[in-house]
Each structure stands twice: as C-alpha cells, then as structure tokens.
C-alpha cells in the first residue's frame, strides 16, 4: 500500500527581499498504484513541490500537510523520508566527487533496508539495473554523476529508482534533455517500476512527449504555485494542442 496525500501545501523561499511564496496551496492525492502527471510552465513551482516533499532545506513549509500512508512526512528529516519510501529523481542530479557509484548505491541501499545487501546478488542487481538503463558497468567505478552527460545523469536516477525500490517516486523532469532513444529507455525503467505492486509515481514534466510512453492515471495542470485543473490523460492532449495559454492570468 502507498498513498501520498498532499493537502493545501504552502511553501516559500527566502530571498533578498524577504520570503517569497512559491506554492500557494497544493492539494492532490496519489492513491495506491497510481501515476499522476504534473504539467506546468517554467517557474510555476513544480521543482519546488518536488523538493519540498523530499525535504530540501531551502524551502520553508508555511502551511498544509504531506503524508505517506498516514505518516507525517513534513516532520521527518530528509533521510527519514527516503527510508519511509519516498524517492526524488532530480531535475539536476548532483555530482559527488570521489564517491563511486558502487559505494554510493551500496550505502544508500544499506541505509534504506537497514542492512547491507547480500554481496553476490547485489553486484548482479547493480550491473543489471545499469545495463537496463544502457549504462555500461564502468559507471559503477566512476564518481557519482561527475562528468556524466545530462542524459546519463537522468538514466542513473532511474537505475537508482529500480534498485532502491521506494513506495512513491517523484520524477522531476526526468524526460527533459533526453533524446528519443534515451526517453524510451527511461520510460521503460519507470514502467518496470510501476508494474511492481502498489507503487505511486508523481511525474513532473514540461512536455507531453513522455506521456506517450507512460500513461498517467491523472493529469494536473500546475500554474502559479497550485493545481489549476485536474483530469484524465486526455487533459494532456488538450495541453499539447493549446498550451498553457488559457490558464495564465490575462496579462497586459
């Protein structure tokens, strides 16, 4: 079972001119086994939503709640959230010089499971996950994300998703910067994850392209820090045809 419930979430960041409200009351619930897509223009607050759920210290929660299977996510530290079953595939994965992918993955897996993975099967699992994401086995000896191309970083995120096996995955623009082949590979990785029992996905994207490979149960249009409209997959088609125009405040 996994239900991620976001209720009236309000978030601000501190700026030179004082706090700035970015999320203005976000409400949505990802039920057991569901995939939700969030689509919205640049700067609408999509990454802010993703980071706030994951617990990035830059974002201050000013209201609302987030629960995972009833547990208060906002009361948890960043690593506790991950151990509770949340995973964030980042829009810009971070480089960690000197720390090998193999060491990183083993440390993360150990932290999440509370025990070290079985050595023999683990090496096979890692190589298998990398291979399915079209990353050859030399990647496991390279420093985390250092010198990876944009596409390799994204594929590495999905390899982690497969290995760490969270309850709910938040994918922040995992599709951007990918060529069509890489997009297919990443989508297949996400779909393999979705096939597992009861996994939730929050798929943040700017483009409808990825929704041809990953069919969401619910599509949310995200504008100016909140959900402007929700609907079925057909809502994506409407966005494809008309863009975000009609949701934006009538300027000028």
């Amino acid at each position: 079972m996994s239900t991620l419930e976001i209720t009236d979430l309000a978030v601000s960041v501190s700026t030179e001119d004082g706090p700035k409200q970015i999320l203005k009351g976000v409400t949505l619930t990802i039920d057991d086994g569901q995939t939700h897509a969030i689509m919205g223009p640049n700067g609408s607050g999509k990454s802010t939503l993703a980071y706030s759920i994951a617990g990035h210290p830059k974002y201050e929660i000013t209201g609302g709640s987030v629960t995972l299977d009833g547990e208060d996510v906002l009361a948890m530290s960043v690593d506790e959230r991950a151990r509770a079953g949340l995973f964030l595939a980042m829009q810009y994965p971070v480089e960690v010089p000197g720390v090998s992918v193999a060491n990183f993955l083993r440390t993360a897996k150990t932290a999440i499971d509370g025990e070290a993975p079985k050595l023999r099967t683990w090496v096979k699992d890692v190589n298998g996950a990398l291979d399915r994401l079209n990353l050859d086995s030399t990647f496991s000896q390279r420093s985390v994300n250092e010198g990876f191309s944009g596409g390799e970083k994204k594929r590495h995120e999905i390899a982690q998703l497969e290995l760490l096996d969270p309850k709910v995955a938040i994918l922040d623009e995992t599709d951007s910067g990918l060529d069509i082949d890489a997009l297919k590979i990443v989508s297949e990785g996400v779909n393999r994850f979705r096939e597992r029992e009861g996994k939730g996905v929050l798929l943040i994207t700017h483009y409808t392209r990825i929704l041809r490979y990953i069919t969401p149960d619910v599509v949310h249009v995200f504008v100016d820090g909140k959900v402007a409209e929700s609907g079925g997959p057909e809502l994506a088609d409407k966005l494809e045809a008309e863009g975000y125009e009609s949701y934006l405040p009538v300027a000028r």
Binding site: H56, D79, A82, L88, M90, P97, V99
Partner: peptide
C-alpha cells in the same frame, strides 16, 4: 551534495563521511 545523499536515505553523518572520503579519495 549532502541533500542528494540524504535523499537516498543516507543519514547526515554518513553523508558527511562520504563527501569527506570523496574529497580526499583521489
């Protein structure tokens, strides 16, 4: 870097250890 590691379940102490280890590793 610390956030990235923590978001993978690694405690802040362990994350610091990893980053420091990486700093000196080469």
């Amino acid at each position: 870097q610390l956030f990235y590691l923590q978001s993978r379940g690694v405690s802040v102490e362990e994350a610091r250890r990893l980053v420091l280890h990486g700093f000196f590793a080469d």
